[in-house]
Amino acid sequence: MGKIVLITGGARSGKSRFAENYVARCGKSIAYIATSQIYDEEMAYRVKLHRQRRPSSWQTFEAPFEAHNALKEAFAEHDTVLFDCLTLYLSNYLCQEKNQSLSLDDLYAETSLLMQELINAVRSVTNKTCVFVTNEVGAGIVPENELARKYRDLAGLCNQQIAKTADEVYLVVSGIPLQIK
């Protein structure tokens, strides 16, 4: 059964850098699942920083959607996968036009299935590790618009679902990782 590690924290907390160092220490052959989509200069800059930090030996899989398939493909050739990040993956899903009209019950159920597909993809392999990076977005004020509230709530539920099944969970605060599970 594959090992799941969850790394969470706020924006610019150092969680991706910690995750990169974690997989570099434990993996022999590393794949990187990138979930972002570049829509503006700010996101292009963030992606550039991530790419610059990654060794050229890491194979990148771009998976803004259907990431469970990318995980399976990555595990076919690699022992360790860094999945960065769950909250961007959720955002991609939530912003698809087909999902805009779903009821809250359906949206919660579909999102849970989305996370379960990721969990199943990792648990179906043997002696391999997936490190999921995610944002902690529920520590601030209640957002004023409906989409932001849905996103915050769904991110919290997704994080709980992955954390519950994870073998290790870390919270990164100001660049300092704290193991919480």
Results as ranks from 00 to 15, higher is better:
1 M>A: 11
160 Q>S: 01
136 E>N: 05
30 I>A: 07
104 L>F: 12
35 T>D: 12
59 Q>M: 09
71 L>Q: 06
100 Q>V: 01
124 S>C: 07
67 A>E: 13
167 D>F: 01
107 L>A: 06
66 E>T: 04
29 S>D: 07
57 S>R: 06
79 D>A: 06
168 E>L: 06
64 P>T: 15
161 Q>H: 00
145 N>C: 10
179 Q>P: 08
41 E>H: 04
149 R>P: 09
110 E>C: 06
103 S>N: 09
72 K>H: 13
164 K>G: 00
47 V>R: 11
108 Y>P: 00
65 F>A: 09
95 C>H: 13
175 G>Y: 14
147 L>E: 11
82 L>E: 12
59 Q>N: 04
54 R>E: 11
135 N>A: 13
77 E>Q: 15
144 E>R: 02
144 E>T: 07
53 R>S: 14
37 Q>F: 00
147 L>R: 01
99 N>C: 07
176 I>Y: 09
107 L>P: 03
71 L>A: 10
34 A>S: 15
38 I>T: 15
175 G>P: 12
31 A>F: 04
47 V>Y: 07
139 A>I: 09
151 Y>H: 12
132 F>W: 01
72 K>C: 10
48 K>A: 10
9 G>F: 11
5 V>R: 00
30 I>Y: 05
17 R>Q: 10
92 N>M: 04
111 T>K: 01
45 Y>Q: 14
105 D>R: 13
46 R>W: 03
143 P>V: 03
121 A>D: 06
33 I>A: 03
136 E>M: 07
37 Q>M: 13
61 F>Y: 15
104 L>D: 15
29 S>C: 08
166 A>T: 01
173 V>H: 05
13 S>E: 12
75 F>P: 02
105 D>N: 13
37 Q>C: 08
44 A>E: 14
81 V>Y: 04
70 A>D: 11
118 L>G: 02
161 Q>K: 00
77 E>S: 14
22 Y>F: 14
